[in-house]
Structures are given as structure tokens and as C-alpha cells.
């Protein structure tokens, strides 16, 4: 029974791991920290898995646990599982990929997003993931109206960062 649960969990996480990687790349700055946070999110997901009823999609459920871990629970730690090497975490885009203006603009935007506070980042992340304001407000525990207001403020902030 437990074996079956383990198998089901690992399989689901393996196929949905992109969500966790995206959260990690927003909230950490190097590969070690990325792996570290990934591990902590995995542990938290696993611990909470018995309470996952399947009445929502596994991926939806993952957003909440992953963001909560990144925003609230995560502390830097040394213990981690060695994972295969990968050269860079997403967004550290090679310079030559960015030659026209739009690409430069994008790079600046990624940098600007990474400079936001933990909560602002979570809002932007859910927005980029195409979540609606109902889900954003529910995940963060704020009202839908405030989520909208906040998002507009973040947009303005990004705009000023981009067009000084």
C-alpha cells in the first residue's frame, strides 16, 4: 500500500516537476539553492500527499504547496541529494540569444521580476502561469480585488524599472 502510494506520488511529481523548477528558478539564484529548494518542496509535497484527495488536479495542488514552501518554509541548508548537472537555471539566458530589442527587453524584465519581494514574485508567477485572479487570491489568502490592485502596482513597478 505504502509502496503503491510512493510510486503514484513520484510518478505524478516526475511528470509535473516543471512547476517546481519554475518556482525554484524564481526564488533562488544558483543551482545549489535551486536543488535545495526543490528538495524541500518535494518533502513538503510528500508529507502532504496523503491529504491530497484528488478532487483538484495534482498540479493545482502543487502550486500551493510549492509556493508556500518557497515563501514561508524554506531555509537554506547543506543537506541535499546530488542531482545531475545542468548548466544554468532558467533565465540565465546566454547573451547571444538576445540581440534584438524585444529580447533585450525580456531579459531586463526577468531581472526585474527576480528583484521583487517574495509575495510580489508569487503573484507574478501565478500570473505568468495563466492563473486567474480567483486562484491567485485563494492561494495567497487575499481578496480578488486586492490581487488585481497589487498586480497593477507590480506592472507599474516593472514598467518604471524598464523605462527609467
Amino acid at each position: 500500500m505504502t509502496k503503491e502510494l510512493e510510486h503514484r506520488f513520484v510518478t505524478e511529481l516526475e511528470s509535473n516537476q516543471n512547476i517546481v523548477h519554475k518556482v525554484c528558478s524564481l526564488y533562488t539564484n544558483d543551482r545549489d539553492a535551486h536543488n535545495d529548494l526543490f528538495q524541500e518542496i518535494t518533502i513538503q509535497l510528500w508529507k502532504a500527499y496523503p491529504k491530497f484527495r484528488g478532487d483538484s488536479k495534482f498540479s493545482t495542488w502543487m502550486y500551493r504547496v510549492a509556493l508556500n514552501t518557497a515563501i514561508t518554509l524554506y531555509r537554506k541548508s547543506k543537506k541535499r541529494v546530488q542531482t545531475q548537472n545542468y548548466d544554468s537555471v532558467i533565465f540565465k539566458i546566454k547573451a547571444d540569444e538576445y540581440d534584438d530589442t524585444q529580447e533585450k527587453q525580456l531579459k531586463l524584465m526577468y531581472n526585474a521580476v527576480k528583484q521583487l519581494g517574495d509575495i510580489d514574485k508569487a503573484l507574478v508567477f501565478l500570473y505568468l502561469e495563466d492563473k486567474d485572479y480567483a486562484e491567485i487570491s485563494e492561494t495567497l489568502g487575499i481578496t480578488e480585488g486586492n490581487a488585481r490592485v497589487k498586480m497593477n502596482r507590480i506592472k507599474n513597478k516593472l514598467r518604471t524599472l524598464l523605462n527609467p
Binding site: 510512493e6 506520488f9 513520484v10 510518478t11 511529481l13 516526475e14 516537476q17 516543471n18 523548477h21 519554475k22 528558478s25 535551486h34 526543490f38 528538495q39 524541500e40 518535494t42 518533502i43 513538503q44 510528500w46 508529507k47 514552501t69 514561508t72 518554509l73 524554506y74 531555509r75 541548508s77 543537506k79 541535499r80 541529494v81 542531482t83 545531475q84 545542468y86 537555471v89 532558467i90 533565465f91 525580456l106 505568468l128 495563466d130
Partner: peptide, 29 residues
């Protein structure tokens, strides 16, 4: 652009993830 970037994300294997679930949490709690 963000949605295009999915392909560049790291990919962990089943075994790597399996090993992780037995690690101790180091959360603030």
C-alpha cells in the same frame, strides 16, 4: 516567453525524486 521556456527546465529522473522524499525537511517550522 515564459511559456516557451518550459523546454529549458532541468529534468530530474524518477530515482532522483524518489531519493528526495526520504530526506529530512529543514523547513523553518
Amino acid at each position: 516567453d515564459w511559456q516557451k521556456k518550459e523546454g529549458e527546465l532541468p529534468k530530474l529522473s524518477y530515482e532522483e525524486i524518489y531519493k528526495m522524499i526520504w530526506k529530512k525537511s529543514s523547513s523553518i517550522v
